[in-house]
Design a binder for these strands. Structure first.
Lengths: 169, 169
DNA sequence: GTAATTGCAAACGCTTTGCAGCGCC
DNA sequence: GGCGCTGCAAAGCGTTTGCAATTAC
């Protein structure tokens, strides 16, 4: 998979992270930068466990450290935390704005960029609330599950299984 | 708190639930209807535990049953399941459309109705995806936490604590 | 040197599961 | 009367916490 972040951007984010750490009078541990690097290499969404398993291949860290560091990365707006389903939090690059299409049957998540999306939300103003970021999740059925469920339903209602569609990929 | 659902609407939903249960060849247990009734009496958002504690006051049920029934209620589109934070799922009436303003500091959730919101999303079309419902969560700071954090920050930077604001409610 | 940070392991909290008995159909 | 559903208790799983050892400053 090609990297999701250019070399310059990664350098910039590393520096931003370093400054954030210094500003909070915290320590620049190798673990923290290793986790940042791997986080920037993830595909568009990832969870703590994916990131952890990716890191531990070549670096000895424990999950707790990954949790701590990822929270730091969210604080300084390099990552963003989403709650797409109840199993675990999903993270993505802070700047990468999109809608999430979430299949209620198989759980797959797809990202969709929409021109009007940012425009619409930029103009929203709230009394008594300072928005930081928006997470829009659209739950529904992906085409595969939709077809599968239709097939199952038809098979259940009548017993004409011989008319069943054959449509794989 | 006044009921969120009119008597006629409750009757309608009870009936819809009954039909859904029959159509699936399941049983109409008193637990299921007791849970439906209490769910309709909740304030705009609730989680399983709030619902459970509310029911068990006058009815002997266990949490597992509440989980099962609430899932049924989601299936037949009486309730809707949201993931607003990582602790637990939040439920609300299916028809009640709004944005969620979620404070990242205190976790409070506020509902906002916006005219443009439905219009904007009604016109969205996706290839390969059949949307069922949309959950839009706006993370940020509520006014109370915003003020509190500003105060703390100022108190931390300089030591001029004597200039501190006094602004409670 | 020393206090922040780490790894480890146990604890925590929401949710799910297994099972024996109850009760709807 | 049979089997779906319930209550109960234990297990599961993502996340957090406590603590001794390590290490950045």
């Amino acid at each position: 998979m090609e990297p999701t972040v250019s070399t310059e951007r990664r350098e910039h984010l590393r520096e931003r992270f370093a400054e954030y750490i210094k500003s909070k009078k915290m320590r620049q541990t190798p673990e923290r930068f290793a986790i940042l690097d791997r986080a920037l290499e993830q595909r568009v969404h990832f969870d703590i466990d994916e990131l952890y398993r990716d890191i531990e291949k070549e670096y000895r860290v424990c999950r707790a450290t990954v949790y701590n560091t990822v929270e730091l990365l969210c604080e300084c707006k390099i990552l963003r935390k989403h709650y797409l389903n109840e199993n675990q939090a999903a993270y993505e690059l802070y700047d990468d704005r999109h809608l999430h299409l979430i299949c209620m049957s198989c759980g797959k998540v797809k990202e969709v960029h929409d021109e009007g999306f940012n425009e619409y939300f930029e103009q929203l103003k709230f009394r008594q609330f300072k928005p930081s970021f928006i997470s829009t999740n659209i739950y529904g059925l992906c085409s595969q599950c939709s077809r599968r469920l239709n097939r199952e339903k038809r098979a259940g209602e009548s017993l004409h299984t011989e008319g069943e569609d054959i449509e794989e990929k």
